[in-house]
Amino acid sequence: MTSHVDTETLALLAEGLLEGDEEHSVQAHVGDCEQCTDQLSALTDVSRVLAEVPATPLPDAVTARIDDALRAELQSRQAPPPEEDAAPPEDDIAPVVPLRRRSGPARWLPYLAAAAAAVFVIGGGTAVLREVLAPSAEETAAPLTAPQPDGPPGPDAALSYYPVVVASGTDYTADGLAAQGRVLIERAGIQNAAGADGDAAAAAPLPSPSALPSDLSACVHHIDDDGQQRPKVIDLATYEGATAWVMVFGTPSDGTGTPVEYTVRVVTPECGSLGSSDDAVVAEAVVPGH
């Protein structure tokens, strides 16, 4: 009993890490030695003391800081090119792809989703998709909705197209489409677009979708292909019980910024992959603008 076992060897023994002979001799010694037995239990206590260190809860400030950092990271990804008319950079972080430009849904989608994310942070009842376009007279005269996300000043200044994406929960029907479309237009608050706050205009803000379908942008793109039409409101809903996207288009402006009439189109989620945009539209109704 002249030499005790050192603490490290005891710790290794406790972990079962000693080799055959050594394990046996150490075990034999510990069995006879009060001091080493004691030390062994002190080692167990080390683990216990470590486990008992109280948890420091994640401070809210840290949560907020991380959210801010990630938001800034998002925005830096979407930073606009200095010139709206300049050709977008060719890499896949091209921040802004004008809707009219045929550059493919894969590049358009990140922007779509990013814009919606920015709005969710604001906490409005309505998700706003924003798309930066080279400003045209009609659109700059009538930005579709507010509040504007806290974006970088560049794109905000040039913002001209804000499709509103909602998930109203409505099941649209063939018979009721015009009336339901009317309700959607009213609730989405796009009517008094010029200067109006989207949320304030809506009696009951429509629920935002928690995520955007990945092929939504392809679909919008597809439908847009045959003209200058871009939906002002997109409702991720159902039509006659089947999943459908209800899109509200404004017909040409009468000059006041409010379309003379709206066209409500029901499209299937497959619309982006169909040959003709006509195939995608399963129903259509016209709603007067005033």
Partner: peptide, 29 residues
């Protein structure tokens, strides 16, 4: 009602990460 999209909250981690990599801005949050 059924909606087109899956609620992000119900997706597994791996799906979220791959959506994030594909540009879905909700997934990482």
């Amino acid at each position: 009602m059924t909606t087109v999209m899956d609620a992000v909250q119900e997706l597994p981690d791996k799906e979220l990460l791959s959506r994030h990599a594909q540009g879905d801005e909700h997934a990482f949050g």
